[in-house]
Design a protein around this nucleic acid. Sequence first.
RNA 1: GCGGCGGUAGUUCAAUUGGUUAGAGCACCGGCCUGUCACGCCGGAAGUUGAGGGUUCGAGUCCCUUCCGCCGCGCCA
Length: 599
Amino acid sequence: MGNLRRTHYCGELRAEHVGQRVVVCGWVHRRRDHGGVVFVDLRDRTGLGQVVFKPDASPEAHARADVIRSEYVLVVCGVLERRADDAINPNLPTGEVELIADELRIVNFATPPPFPLEDDAPVEESTRMRYRAHDLRRAVMQRRLELRHRLHQSLRAACVEDGFLEIETPILTRATPEGARDFLVPSRLHPGSFFALPQSPQIIKQLLMVAGYDRYFQIARCFRDEDLRADRQLEFSQLDLEMSFVGVEDVLEVLEEITARAFREVLDVELARPFPRLSYDESMARYGTDRPDTRIELEIVDLTDAVADCEFKVFSGAVKSGGLVRALPVPKADEVSRGELDRLVALAQEWGAKGLAWIRVADDGSWQSPIAKFLSDDEREAIASRANLEPGHLIFFMADRESVVCDVLARLRSELGHRLGRVADRPWEPLFVLDFPVFTQDDDGKITYMHMPFVAPREEDIGRIRSHPLEIRSTHYDLVMNGIELGSGSLRNHRSDLQLEIFEVLGYAEASARERFGFLLDALDSGAPPHGGFAFGLDRLALLMAGGESLRDVIAFPKTQRAQDLFMQAPGQVDPDQLRDLGLRLRRKPDPAQDPGDS
RNA sequence: GCGGCGGUAGUUCAAUUGGUUAGAGCACCGGCCUGUCACGCCGGAAGUUGAGGGUUCGAGUCCCUUCCGCCGCGCCA
């Protein structure tokens, strides 16, 4: 490009620059060659600007413009002119002006793009992934990544201004026995030993609190070697934060302030404050999930005692065996046809329900239902009043173990809410969920932690940890928005005696607890202050704000569902020498389908 | 690991019941064009129908195996 340097970005040319001599740099978005005059839409990350090559302005530039093709890289010099009134393009921010080129430097040629770079062009995602550099040139992707940039800056500024120190923590760390599968990195200097990539910096940030750093934050990369979903990648980013000498309210205040600020600075949206709060029990009872989308105007009702003794054995039997009966009433459900009812029942069965009973209240108030005949007048009356049944209503019943009832009704609520358009016209609905249990039971009935083993119980429950572990409540909190869990955290156990008691309930004798977490327990004993914090899922927050389909829309270079990078073609095989250095030998031949780009 | 959907030209799609030489738009290449902005007009090239096997006189189409992509289950806070 010689000594020419950009004076303006393409997308920022305006009428106020008319008459100036400008230099723009960018990619050829489109060329319109009229023989005598050639128009080029030049693109950079700010947008498009029109460049005009006219023989009378510069015969050389016009002649050279003949070879220009899509995605060629140009540096163009000329005088900016106002367009004639009938040539103004109202669809472009730069549509009032155009650059009359007198010097053209083609600084690179380009192969034809593999697909159109328009926002609305339908392109298969695998093609986008293989040609990610082209995909990322599309304005929609540049907008999303810029939004994410602004999100990161907003969060970082909020933390810094609130007195938090940004401290990096190791990427090469130690495998943990709990939680997700670790990514392992073999150690060359210690053959047979492995580092692990962090699933989160949880313990290490607690050590920072022990060390007196008082307030820490980091935009931390985390790694979990589990199967991918639309909302789950192998590596992801968290705003990780921890503070000392605080209680739950102090942390929630920071969390709310940071979130509200991010929405203000990134989207120009003022979130209603304070954020509403919901207990875990209430959330499960009303919505069947601990991350409800409260915009959906349907709520679950409990009917366990109303039908405990009814003749319908599915209900009474479930109650007798310790389960419960809950229902989802749907007002004004006339549009749900009988065929759709059958499909919903089948859907519920896919979700794990044994069946899904329903009652439709006809216009004359009579009940149409396969199960109505098993219900006494008293039971009907109880159901109707509990669910506020009126003509036109439909109500779905689940009778099973609590976990199944909640799960199926929660999914049904979401499905019907969206299908019937029962979603309130409120774009952003943040919500804190509080008062989670510390412990829960796994499928075998064994007691396990609900979130992680370091969560502190509420102070008033500490005396009952051993005696009533499943009843005690934790200091854990979730931030939920529109049905998505954005972040969560808790106060941590800062006394080793309390932490050991919790390990004991989890089934670790002190010796084995010390073996696994000795460095943490020792650190607590060295003078740990009370502390707590949270971690914010940045990828999901960016996706929510940017409005894409999957995390791949807000990550520059994501992995496919089969955990490959089609652009870098990773993972790949390595040189045998590298394996030898690490003291490793392959037990299995490498996967022959090792060429992810060749489909 | 399992279930569902998909894979045809660079790209987005079509191709009757298994039936002639697998078509179209855009992109691409060549030509023409001085006011376009999805420019226009004329012409052209472009295919291992993801891969392998099978059935058949004949397979894009049917069967089997396999690879890749997406969504979900399991898994995972």
